[in-house]
């Protein structure tokens, strides 16, 4: 069964499955130990390299297990981890498992433009107002009408010495928003890149000392970015294209990495995101097989009661009109052929002398005849008339 079409072949909303979008992706860390090598970390030795890629490798397959930053001894203690997801995803959660005592201040950011600009998704701090100038997150989520980056408690140290940073997109979103019908929520969950900014080592607690007394490094594993490849309800899976780029396998007459536009010939109505109630498939223009291109006209769309706004371009086979549904001047419909036939329009072939013009009736093919002339193409004298020598009045009354 095709998730994007029902049993009757009608389009329906379809979405890719939930995946860890960070799995196998390269992670850029602003600081990684082992260069120069020390007793426990050597970037040139695979057995002792604590590289950032360990954050997104398949769990349990790598050794060592954890990425480690360089030793931090004095401020600033900022270290960033950045992962590009390759295309837009709709986030569900982000999590990061710390291998040592978790930092007491973390900022979680996202980009929607492949790293050109960044906006916060949330903050995690033992002192929200001092670190980020924000109050602690209210228990019921944001008070405003839309999602916002809130400040949550810092990850707690676990008995094993580590800790877990966990963020759900719902944490920053007011209750009651529905992804299908809320553009602000759609915007909130959309990300092409994730950045985690670690800003205060656990060893400092809540203090802002510029120097740590004991050498410290951040250490973490299992960076998970739970989300769905963003296809706007028009694809059930994402694939790698011939250039190795992740793209949606677009259906419903859509195209683009995120199925966010209609295919060139599918512009009979505006592009829309699919919802659970309506697939909003892009519709092919109705050109009766006589055109390969069309354009969308909003005015015609409104006038049609929001049903059809496509205008066929470059009608071929001597057809004309918005849907290539009638014959162009100088041609008429052959009643023996269907409208989609390449030869549905026949040349008028009006007689150069007997006809008063070159344009025939587009339905009947009747040319306009001069006085006393008859026939579909005006090529004979009518009964009671005979041919004259004058091309201006080719038929005159029989004496």
């Amino acid at each position: 069964a095709d998730p994007c079409y029902d049993e009757a072949g009608e389009p329906r909303c379809c979405i890719p499955g939930l995946v860890n979008a960070a799995l196998g992706r390269e992670v850029l860390a602003s600081s990684t130990c082992g260069r120069p090598a020390n007793r426990i970390c050597d970037s040139s030795d695979p057995q002792r390299a604590h590289s950032a890629d360990l954050l997104t490798s398949v769990p349990g397959t790598a050794s060592p297990l954890c990425w480690r930053s360089d030793l931090l001894q004095r401020a600033p203690f900022n270290v960033t981890l950045t992962v590009a997801l390759g295309k837009a995803f709709e986030l569900v959660f982000v999590s990061l498992r710390f291998c040592s005592a978790p930092p007491t201040s973390v900022a979680l950011l996202k980009s929607q433009d492949h790293g050109r600009s960044w906006v916060p998704l949330g903050f995690f701090s033992s002192s929200c107002s001092l670190d980020y100038g924000r109050p602690p997150a209210p228990a019921g989520g944001p008070a405003g009408p839309g999602p916002e980056a809130l400040c949550f408690p810092a990850p707690q140290a676990q008995p094993d010495g580590g800790g877990l940073l966990a963020f759900s997109v719902q944490d920053g979103s007011p209750q009651g928003l529905d992804l299908d019908n809320s553009p602000v929520l759609q915007d909130w969950v959309t990300a092409t890149d994730i950045r985690i900014l670690l800003t205060r080592p656990a060893i400092l607690g809540d203090t802002r000392d510029p120097v740590v007394t004991v050498p410290y490094s951040y250490s973490a594993t299992e960076l998970q970015v739970g989300g769905r490849c963003k296809c706007n309800g028009h694809a059930s899976r994402c694939l790698l294209d011939s250039h190795g780029h992740l793209i949606c396998d677009c259906q419903h007459g859509t195209e683009g990495p995120d199925c966010s536009r209609c295919k060139p010939f599918f512009c009979d109505r505006p592009w829309q995101r699919a919802t659970g109630q309506e697939a909003h498939a892009c519709l092919a223009c109705s050109c009766n097989g006589h055109a390969r291109r069309c354009r969308f006209n909003m005015e015609l769309y409104r006038l049609s009661g929001r049903r059809s706004g496509g205008v066929c371009l470059n009608c071929r086979h001597n057809t004309a009109g918005r849907h290539c549904h009638y014959c162009r001047e100088g041609f008429y419909r052959d009643p023996g052929r269907v409208l989609s036939d390449r030869r549905a329009c026949r040349a008028c072939d009006c007689h150069p002398v007997g006809a008063a013009g070159k344009t025939c009736n587009q339905t009947t093919g009747q040319c306009p005849c001069k006085d006393g002339v008859t026939g579909l193409t005006c090529n004979r004298c009518a009964p009671g008339f005979q041919q004259s020598r004058s091309p201006v009045a080719p038929c005159v009354k029989t004496p």
Binding site: V353, V373, R380, P383, F385, R389, P391, P394
Partner: peptide, 23 residues
Amino acid sequence: DVMPTLDMALFDWTDYEDLKPEV
């Protein structure tokens, strides 16, 4: 009765050279 088709050869184009169709 079906009338014969117009015979182009019978037309005198002397005064209507500018109207004469290209053959």
